[in-house]
């Protein structure tokens, strides 16, 4: 059987557009999200919506409806600006809102928040996800967190209050325990330890360039613990600590 160019053209058009037509008729063809996430197919949460399937195009109104999270909690957690309707606030807008945090806060943060808030399963080993401190505060106040989740929060909270936390979030933070990373942040002056943050190093006079040289980079926010950053980058904290301590000593002597 021989194929000519004209028959090839016809077959291509029939298969592509015919395929699209058939799948449209069957209700399978979708070029945008249906605003209905996939459901867990097994385990205790079988049949429940999977937070991992939350998309950037979802609004907080969608998430509130799907996962039964009060909209005011979402707005407070993610610092929806005053005057903006949280129900129509799209998740993807968070990347612009928290642009100063180099993409650490975004759709993944909402997925994690939703999972923690609702108690739905979430594989913490999938990727490193960070939350703004306002979201951590809401979770600590209202979510059924276990010890592992609390520890994760402590190590994955970005302090945004100084920049943009609205008054409402401060109220929650005051009435609830703050994330562990900030709660117990007491550091002996000039001594590099497990609680030392990048901001401490800068405050002690270690130049940013020197820190970057030793650590191979800087985290998006200076409130990150040096120890956490070492873990994240696969660096030996004990070795890094010695190098940084030498720089701190040098800086403090000046």
């Amino acid at each position: 059987m021989k194929m000519t160019s004209k028959s090839m053209a016809a077959v291509i058009l029939v298969i592509l557009f015919g395929g699209i037509a058939v799948t449209t008729a069957l209700g399978w063809w979708a070029t945008e999200t249906t605003k209905e996430p996939a459901r867990f197919s097994e385990g205790e949460a079988a049949g429940e919506y999977n937070p991992l399937d939350i998309r950037g195009s979802y609004t907080f109104g969608d998430i509130s409806r799907l996962f039964e999270i009060p909209i005011e909690d979402l707005a407070q957690a993610f610092q929806v600006p005053q005057g903006v309707d949280p129900a129509s606030f799209q998740v993807k807008n968070l990347e612009d809102q928290f642009a100063a945090y180099a993409g650490d806060l975004g759709t993944s943060s909402v997925r994690l928040f939703t999972a923690f808030y609702t108690g739905l399963p979430y594989d913490l080993t999938l990727e490193e996800v960070y939350l703004p401190d306002s979201a951590a505060a809401v979770l600590l106040a209202k979510a059924p967190l276990n010890e592992e989740q609390k520890a994760y929060l402590a190590a994955h909270t970005v302090i945004t209050s100084e920049v943009s936390t609205p008054p409402a979030a401060e109220t929650v933070a005051a009435s609830t325990p703050a994330p562990a990373a900030t709660e117990t942040h007491t550091v002996e002056e000039g001594k590099v330890a497990g609680k030392t943050t990048f901001q401490d190093l800068l405050d002690w006079g270690v130049p940013k360039e020197v820190i970057e040289q030793i650590m191979g980079g800087m985290p998006p926010t200076t409130s990150t613990l040096v120890k956490d950053y070492c873990t994240l980058k696969g660096l030996s904290f004990s070795e890094i600590k010695l190098l940084l301590q030498a720089e701190v000593d040098k800086a403090l002597k000046k």
């Binding site: 395929g19 799948t23 399978w28 070029t31 945008e32 996939a38 459901r39 197919s41 999977n50 399937d53």
Partner: peptide, 15 residues
Amino acid sequence: TGTFVQKIHESSFIL
């Protein structure tokens, strides 16, 4: 996981 990578939808799968 039964989900699509972000920005990808059923249409990509069908195509």
